[in-house]
């Protein structure tokens, strides 16, 4: 993995980083690169409440905030920013307001690399809207000042339409951190994390490949 000056991760939900990006984040941190994680919402409209439920609609945001802080600590992120938007509403926000807020963070942090969702190929409307806002903010910058923009995509049609990921980070060296980050989002990942850990123990090749390789698409700016 290339050494970066500063990495800025921008996602709408706590746990968006867990499955596909936490190994990359942990690797950057181990390389001595500062990582800023801007998380737009607290996932307050999530459906996982624990079974039997230990959260409710009103306590979920507080629980997920704590989980996000725990996950950030596990990954070694020093600069975690919670932007205070509401889950499921990003696409309805004023586009310019959102673009400007993200532009201000980019301007302050001066990242050499931004990681976000690939607009149009990220399934959840908040993901697509967040990715689109990041693209707008970066496109507004003079071409020479723009950081690299690497996106996560996972819609069914993504490889047909945007091809194979051009960046694959092998993160097996930090797999334990990745599992811990996934587990930190307890309310959302309880069942999945347990299953994943067992499959890893059995060295299920598909699961190992999925956990150990994180895929990104360089966005054509």
């Amino acid at each position: 993995m290339e050494k970066e000056r500063h990495v800025l991760v921008i996602f709408p939900h706590p746990d968006d980083e867990a499955f596909g990006v936490s190994g990359t984040i942990a690797t950057h941190v181990q390389n001595g690169t500062p990582v800023t994680y801007a998380c737009l919402t607290l996932g307050e409209m999530g459906r996982n409440m624990g079974n039997p439920p230990f959260a409710n609609r009103e306590t979920l945001s507080k629980i997920r905030k704590k989980e996000l802080q725990d996950a950030a600590e596990v990954m070694g992120i020093q600069d975690l920013r919670m932007l205070g938007y509401r889950d499921k509403t990003i696409e309805f926000e004023d586009d310019d307001k959102l673009t400007n807020e993200l532009a201000a963070i980019i301007d302050e942090v001066q990242p050499s690399l931004i990681i976000t969702f690939y607009p149009g190929y990220s399934v959840h409307p908040d993901h697509d809207a967040t990715g689109a806002a990041v693209v707008r903010a970066v496109r507004n910058m003079p071409a020479n000042d723009r950081p690299k923009l690497q996106c996560v995509a996972f819609s069914r049609n993504c490889e047909e339409e945007i091809g194979q990921a051009d960046i694959v980070n092998e993160v097996s060296a930090v797999a334990h951190i990745k599992i811990a980050a996934i587990k930190a989002h307890l309310s959302q990942t309880q069942l999945m994390a347990k299953e994943m850990e067992e499959q890893l123990k059995k060295q299920d090749p598909q699961v190992m490949a999925r956990v150990h390789n994180e895929r990104f698409w360089t966005y054509p700016l």
Binding site: G46, N51, P52, P53, N56, R57, E58
Partner: peptide, 27 residues
Amino acid sequence: THFEKDGTGRLLLAGHDFSGKLAVALQ
């Protein structure tokens, strides 16, 4: 399926599906 009268006196009602995921809420 579930209810709670929370600390501030609000009535929280929710329906969780067979896997425990929230499907409906009325508060």
